[in-house]
Nucleic acid binder design. Structure first.
Lengths: 242, 242
DNA sequence: TCAAAAGTGTTCTTATTACACCCATGG
DNA sequence: CCATGGGTGTAATAAGAACACTTTTGA
């Protein structure tokens, strides 16, 4: 094989950090590797990119095969290409993250076979390959995005309470937020629709339900606009392992 | 060739958007392609990634071969992998941008052979491959970075005036900034060292020279800190062609 | 009637904006 | 002496941060 052909002794893959939000915690969907290398370890879902497949499509496919979900928020973060990141050859991987409504997630045959499981971000241990690094990069990107774009709603069911929304932001940003200031700011953005419905069957005063105003948001974006959120002083942070 | 081997009929490259600042304008270093495909068109400098080379190293190598410069600000932006982005095969490219002090740039034999030339961002026309898209992605990233990290200094000579710095920000952000507010904010960050020197040979009151306080900045970063800058109302923008 | 979370306004502080004139130099 | 860009402060406004009690429900 000539030197030139060596350039083609390589492959590319995508890895997808699938985020969900449940029980007040930000979670990530990992699979337990059934084969070498790193057999038995937890890893990010991923696959080689098919020859006639765009990168975004590959990331979407990985997600759909695992969760059955389509039309989901998906964002490319970075490429990881250290020479020895894959023990079997030169594989560059492109990292994506997705945001899904965890309530929509059902274990599919594919995910069952692969032993997919949600992990709280704080409880993720050493992963296969360089997946800790990839997870961390994606998490940092999410943290940044959530401050400037209303992507948080992608993680919540269509109807949610303001407290649920606040807890989501607190989990992602690893901070505490002042309830009154949070509500004031969120409501002043005019991106929530008050549904005139309330929670049912809770052992306390039921909260009003809201919906994200997708169309209104898209209109604002077209007109050029920014979404920002800052933190208050509270609550410690749960660091992510390296 | 088996289906599996098809995965290896592909290559990856890096492309490097090299930014410089001169004559009050943000510039990008392009090369005129001497070979097919896209022969004769302007393109971003780039190359295939060597089999035993990390992505960052490849991007650094492209820069060094063209400019002779090392130890330069370099940031990965994104991977571009549309199936048909390269007419000769499946090539995924990883986009980087670098910030160089344009005064340090000397035409090297390699760059001469390749007809390298600085282009003002506003005067870039249709480029080879998907390089307009890549350029735009890198420019957007730079725009964002410059608001939150003091990377602007990478584009200026070691000693600069506050007006030069302001013009740099105005060029990158495509906006106008109020002189007094800009100075107040920049100086209040305590990231500039007043060199007690002034310009010479200018036909007006000579300006004081400043230096970026690298060490002080790194200390602040270690202690956790943010660098921010907002715009005022002025000046139109010079859009970047799609 | 108790526990649990929902809901709600005001004051203080800080950051941002707008804005106009005198100064030092070279030609 | 004039053209050119350098340099400076203050007042008004807007945004953010701090903070505590009443309400509604189910158990």
């Amino acid at each position: 094989m000539t030197e030139f052909n060596n350039f083609f002794k390589s492959a590319f893959s995508v890895d997808n950090v699938i985020f969900g939000f449940d029980e007040g915690d930000l979670k990530v969907l990992l699979i337990n590797r059934g084969a070498e290398p790193y057999k038995g370890m937890w890893a990010l879902p991923g696959d080689l990119v098919y020859p006639n497949e765009d990168l975004d499509s590959a990331a979407g496919r990985v997600l759909e095969e695992l969760t059955g979900l389509r039309d989901v928020y998906l964002e490319q973060v970075n490429a990881f290409g250290a020479v020895n990141r894959h023990p079997l050859g030169r594989v560059i991987t492109v990292a994506y993250y997705s945001l899904i409504k965890i309530s929509n997630y059902v274990v599919t045959p594919a995910s069952f076979a692969q032993q997919a499981k949600w992990h709280s971000l704080g409880e993720v241990n050493t992963l296969a390959f360089d997946h800790n690094e990839i997870l961390n990069a994606c998490y940092q990107r999410l943290k940044q995005r959530v401050r400037t774009r209303p992507v948080g709603f992608e993680l919540l069911p269509p109807k949610f309470t303001l407290t649920e929304l606040q807890h989501l932001y607190e989990a992602i940003l690893e901070t505490g937020l002042d309830k009154r200031n949070f509500r004031k700011k969120i409501l002043s953005m005019n991106l929530l629709v008050d549904l005139d419905e309330t929670q049912e069957g809770v052992a306390h005063r039921p909260a009003k339900l809201y919906q994200f105003a997708q169309e209104r948001y898209e209109k604002l974006v077209r007109e050029g606009f920014s979404f920002e959120l800052k933190e208050s002083k509270r609550k410690p942070s749960s660091p992510l392992p390296a």
